[in-house]
Amino acid sequence: MSTFLWVIFPYICLAIFVVGHVWRYQYDKFGWTTRSSQLYESRLLRIGSPLFHFGMLGVVLGHFIGLVIPQSLTDRLGLSHEAYHVIALAGGIPAGIAAVVGLAILVYRRRTVGPVFSATTVNDKVMYAVLGLVIALGMWNTIAGSLLTIGGEYNYRDGVSPWFRQIFWFQPDATLMEDAPLGFQLHAFLAFLLFAMWPFTRLVHVFSAPLGYVTRPYIVYRSRDDRPGVATGTRAQKRGWERVG
């Protein structure tokens, strides 16, 4: 069972994540959008959305530091375990709170503002439920596990982090996760579930972060014929009907 949960399942999810994105990009460029609802309601969005998104950026950065940078490296740099935790909590808790509060505002808005609610698909609702659970569990792990140490102290950098890194060199050790507290197990499990859902939800907009805007010229010129092998206009050329030459 633990092999399935902590070896097979993550790989299935990551495979779906990668292949799913490639497939969606090929199949559904037109549907690849933020699906913004700002046209319907702006006041709550103006507070909730930046709070949530900037909070999430902080959270993602925190996860990168916690999961990818091995403890041995920070030890070698002379950063003590306690000092690391203070830094992690000082950065992580405000970011986490921003994300949770932002998400709460956004979910409240989605439910109470009529037009926004009627533009919410089942797909969105399921995604929000999983995302909300992952975030809630993450907050619980941080506050209860690390800050208040309810149920004993657990150093995720000895358990979850090595396991996560091992996934990427195809040697995951399921026992590392077996020993983790239930909160961490659930958080990791649901996070991978979210990765599997990712390509099929509006979350794909994360990968269109328009960083190229900083360097590109303001005005884009394009020739009518500049997409080789593709007909002009909205309709893509059909397979089997490609032009010669």
């Binding site: 460029k29 037109f30 690849w32 933020t34 907009h205 328009p210 010129y221 394009r222 009518r224």
Partner: peptide, 21 residues
């Protein structure tokens, strides 16, 4: 970069496949 000006006739268009909303 989804909105572009056509080189041939200067018509400004939105590439619906590149627009991310």
């Amino acid at each position: 970069g989804a909105i572009y000006k056509r080189e041939e006739d200067g018509i400004v268009l939105v590439d619906q496949d590149k627009c991310r909303g």
